[in-house]
Write a protein that binds this DNA or RNA. Structure first.
Lengths: 361, 361
DNA sequence: ATGAAAGCGCTAACAT
DNA sequence: ATGTTAGCGCTTTCAT
């Protein structure tokens, strides 16, 4: 005997309000509010009556009404290109985790790298009254992007919110912004130096994305390591591609076809490394016997690659956490300056690097 | 000369309201509202004056106020265990993508599998007035879990919202719920049948999570395939573990230590498969020459595994999209019944399966 | 074409 | 300890 349930058969019933509770409990609105907030003395008997009504009506506050009255919405916005990227997902987890700890809601928006969509999202978040808007990922390193960032920071600040930049360098001018960065350059230096100290001299850099901050910093670290080992950088060894897997596959095929000589690859991201390794395997070049490979990001799948990928660990989860924590703990009075944090990176040595093979005579 | 910017130096200034705009433009609130909504005739000159004020004040609506007035909040909630799992991330992307298409905001909450946290999150979402609450992932298959789901569905429905279950079987009783499922059992059947048709007879099933819907359905498919090939299931070949990588590594080591004989592994998830392959490799067993392996989920990293993993493709992104679409397009009047959709799964044949090696004489 | 005013659900000051 | 009331920012009748 299936008994149909009243709620559904009545369709979308009006949700219970605080007044409903008050009426049922025979008290005033204020009393109900006080019972729920628990920040004010209320007699035990009334409290019980109110709580019974709350349960009976299955009442929950209207967050909109509360936010309107409070003038703040207890939400954190997280804006990224694509939640599917493992490193972004990791950062998102950090943000969500920490937001939950502070009792904040976490709104996620993706932009697919579209500037237009980014602007729209920022406005949406201002409309929401988000306490912070966390932008993750490197940015384009041109005047126009910088200008947009400045505008975002200011309009957000003017509304009592705060822009947080994750994983990109701080703007050059004073701006009400929090920057949680990690040491991209040092990680790249360490990775390259590792290769050099194994004896590699011709190291292919794959992922020289021009005008993109993350990419530029990694490339800079590569260059610095080369220089400090007294090696002249060779433009032929610098492959310009974005961080996508597909792009690196294409690029790597092209490099191999051109017969460029190299004994090691420093891929600017693990995805890039995955693409390179696929092509190397296709062409019968063994990693690390024939070619050593180092990646960047230390995404979880690196340990399932064969050989396990040596890569630069980036603390993405902590990046997300720190972003939230900094905003939550920042004294709103002291908010005008740039608030800049740099997290460390370090090399994870695994199995994709070996000394270069001796030249066949 | 660094000019300091006014907004920041004044600290968190009050954000501009519609009244501010009205005042600056010298019109009434109603007029501003109408200009912004664009759903009402307004003279061109007034419109221009209003728009100028909007730009000058950098005004954006207060979403809370609007939602309060409208009685609806244009947000979709997405609740999952852990955003870091590649398949969940994929589904999340689908939800976000489709939500954006409908102009909805997407709130993400993780529960880490805690029931307590799940309840809290549901209430939070009721408070937010989310139009839909999408729960993704299998559920425990016990009375208590079922009871919770019933309660969620009803209280959400009572508030004009809707519960959407993604990737789990529909509840046994009529309930105001939308279920977007995929054919777990058929996928498992196909995977197992593939192995069987290659000649494998002793197939290890890793990931028999007891009382967990996803796991049970996959196991059922395995069993059915065995039966239809006239093979007696062997309990020794059924390994009980959750879907985590770490658990499968432990389990696989234990199985190998026990010297259980098998020529193929059907892992109930790709993560499980990754763990199994790691252990197999550690112990010098080649895939697929010595042991064939099939996974489940088809997460992106499967193509970077060596050998590339043969696995069952699950349309996670479409799952997320369908969840949103169904709620958005459902006539609220027709909302009482269970709304059930089943998406298909199919086998992705790659390189981790080969016929079993001939017994060494 | 525009304005005045009520009210969405809640909290907090101000009574009592 | 409890009630009354104003108002958060917006949309939307109802007037004009």
């Amino acid at each position: 005997m299936k008994k149909s349930f009243p709620a559904a058969s009545e369709g979308a019933r009006r949700r219970a309000t605080l007044s409903d509770v008050a009426q049922m409990a025979g008290v005033s609105n204020a009393t109900v509010s006080r019972v729920l907030a628990g920040n004010y003395p209320v007699s035990v008997t009334t409290k019980n009556r109110v709580m019974r009504a709350v349960r009976q009506l299955d009442y929950v506050v209207n967050a909109q009404a509360r936010a309107l009255q409070a003038g703040a919405s207890r939400t954190i916005a997280f804006v990224l290109h694509d939640i599917t990227g493992p490193s972004f997902a990791e950062a998102a987890a950090g943000v969500e985790e920490e937001a939950a700890r502070y009792g904040r809601l976490c709104v996620v928006c993706t932009t697919n790298g579209s500037r237009e969509r980014q602007s729209k999202v920022i406005d949406l978040m201002r409309a929401q009254g988000a306490e912070a808007v966390i932008l993750i990922g490197g940015t384009d390193n041109d005047e126009e992007s910088h200008g947009r960032l400045v505008a975002y920071a200011r309009s957000l600040a003017a509304a009592g919110s705060r822009l947080v930049l994750c994983g990109c360098p701080p703007p050059r001018e004073p701006l009400p912004v929090t920057v949680i960065d990690y040491d991209n350059e040092a990680g790249a230096y360490a990775a390259t130096a590792h290769l050099l100290s194994q004896g590699h001299r011709r190291i292919l850099f794959v992922g020289k994305g021009e005008g993109y901050t993350t990419s530029e910093a990694r490339f800079a670290g590569y260059l610095r390591a080369l220089t400090s080992f007294g090696i002249e950088p060779d433009p032929e060894l610098q492959v310009v591609v974005d961080f996508s897997r597909a792009a690196s596959v294409r690029a790597m095929r092209e490099v191999l076809a051109r017969q460029v000589a190299f004994t090691a690859v420093f891929a600017a991201s693990d995805m890039t490394a995955a693409g390179c390794m696929q092509v190397l395997r296709e062409q019968g070049r063994k990693v690390p016997e024939d070619v050593s490979v180092v990646g960047y990001d230390d995404i979880p799948m690196t340990i399932d690659m064969t050989p396990r990928l040596t890569t630069v660990h980036v603390p993405y989860r902590e990046l997300g956490r720190a972003a939230v924590r900094h905003v939550m703990e920042l004294d709103p009075a002291a908010r005008q300056d740039i608030d800049h944090v740099v997290l460390g990176t370090h090399l994870m040595v695994r199995e994709s690097v070996a000394p270069p093979a001796v030249e066949p005579a």
